[in-house]
Amino acid sequence: MILETENLSVAYGPIEAVKGLSLRLEEGQLITIVGANGAGKSTTIRALSGEIRPSGGEIRYRGRAISRMAPHEIARLGIVQCPEGRRVFAGLSVLENLKLGAYGRGLQGEMKQGLDRVFGMFPRLAERREQLAGTLSGGEQQMLAIGRALMARPEVLLLDEPSLGLAPIMVQTVFEAIREINRAGTAVLLVEQNAFLALRTASYGYVLQTGRVVLEGTAKDLAMDEQMMRAYLG
């Protein structure tokens, strides 16, 4: 077990956005959390990264409780989040963005290997390495965001809505990369609104509705489940 939550609850002031969530991520596994917007998916990811302090429950990384740690400390442990909306540093070049990913985890010495790996995966980024990140297309920015997270050599990669706002062809490229990262041994937690896509990529899934898990199971089973559609369309 690399990452697990036990009865995790998260509240924004009086609003409880996540209620009693328990999920498990094994070494090398790729799991997904799906659900309509407002279901609490992003809140879960933010709690895992230490951005919001949980109101209840526990988060454990390799058996160690981490729910009181600051975001940068969690990132340094190797739990790296690739946030929703990409959030690349628009005024920095592609190369600078990538290098920061490694620098944040103190991996200055392994800059070269990291860059080789990312450029190997996304040749498009190599072509645009000197360009300002803000001038990239949406898909390229998503590649950069994933690449930047990869530079930190994550043990666990948290992906928040990587398909959001991308053209279908780009979605394919991005998801292919996600599978490849997972095949190379990184455990991945994928949060997605595009449920079919997410369930085809992951091996196990949780369906969230208004902060609660209403359904969980192997991705194959979930994809066929009638209840899935109800979680989205009522």
Binding site: S163, P168, V171, Q172, F175, N194, R200, M228, M229, Y232
Partner: peptide, 18 residues
């Protein structure tokens, strides 16, 4: 609206995109 395939696709994503 609930039965409209375009709506279902927008919400749940499509097989085609995967």
């Amino acid at each position: 609206v609930k039965r409209d395939p375009r709506v279902i696709q927008a919400y749940l994503g499509s097989e085609a995109a995967a």
